Computed example of a mutant assay.
Amino acid sequence: MKTKLREFVLSLFPESRNKLVHEGYKSFVYEIISFVNAFIHEQDAISALNGTTGPSVISRWEAPPHPAIKVNFDSAFNQQSSSAISSAIGRNSEGLIMAACAIPHNNVFDAFVAEVVTCKQAVQFAKDMRLINVIIEGDFLTVIKKINVGSHDRSIIAPIIVDIKKLAKKFKAISFYFVRREANKAVHALVRECRSCQVPCYWFEEAPMEASTAADSDRRLLFYAHV
C-alpha cells in the first residue's frame, strides 16, 4: 500500500521523484501533505460553488449593516522561504475603508496554515481596532467551515482555530463567512501590493493604491445595486 501511494503521488508530482532520491523522505512527506491540503480545499470550494453547502455563496462585496464593520482577509504564501503575508481591510456600511493591515509571518508550513493564520490576524486586527460588531470574510472555505463547526477540530490547524474562537468571544457580535474571490478583490489587491513587506504595516481610513481602487470599485457597485 505504501509503495502504491508513493507511486501515485509521484505520478502527480514527477519532480518529487528527484526530491525523494536526493532530499529524502521528509521532502516527500511534505509533498503529500501539501497535495492533500490543496485537494481538500479544492473539493470544498467546488461544493460551495455548486450550492451544496447551504446558503448561496456571496459573489461580490456587500456592505455590512450599520453599525457593523466588515473585515475581509487574504494571504500570500511563499513556499521557498516558508513565510506568508496576512492582509485585512475593514470597511463600514458605506463601503469606506476604516483601516487596513499587512503582517509578515515566518515559519509558515503551507498555504493552508497561512490562510488560517491570516484569519486569526484579521480577528486580532478587529480587536485592536476596538470593534464590537464584526463580520469576517475570506475566500478559503475550509478555514471558515472549521471555525463555524461546533465539533472539536483534529487537523493540523486545530490550535489556531481554538485561538480564533477564543478571540471571537471578545466581541459583542462576530460572524464568519466564506465569499468567492470576486467579493475579496480589495484585500487580494492589498496582499499583492505588500508581498515584500518585512515589518507590520497599518493604514487608517486609507489603503495602498491598488487596494483603494478595488474598494472604490466595490462602492460603485453598491450604488448601482440600489439604483
Rank of each mutant, 00 (worst) to 15 (best):
A100T: 03
E137P: 04
G90E: 03
A183S: 08
A111C: 05
S87N: 07
L96P: 01
D139V: 02
L222Q: 04
D163A: 14
I103G: 03
S16N: 03
H22V: 11
Y202K: 04
G24E: 11
E206K: 08
E42Q: 06
V162A: 14
K26L: 15
S11E: 11
Q121Y: 12
R91E: 00
E15P: 00
W61K: 11
G24Q: 08
D44E: 10
D139S: 07
I157A: 00
P200A: 07
I69L: 12
Q121D: 04
H152I: 15
P64S: 09
L20P: 03
F39R: 06
V199H: 10
K4F: 11
M1P: 09
E205F: 12
E193I: 11
L141R: 06
E94D: 10
E115F: 04
K127V: 02
Y30M: 00
F178A: 02
R130T: 03
S175E: 09
A48I: 05
D128A: 02
P208I: 13
A126Q: 00
A158V: 14
S75F: 08
E193W: 02
A111W: 10
T52H: 11
P14E: 05
A84I: 09
K146Q: 05
A183Y: 02
K2T: 07
N92K: 00
V108M: 06
V199N: 12
K169T: 09
V134D: 11
K170G: 00
H41Y: 09
V199T: 12
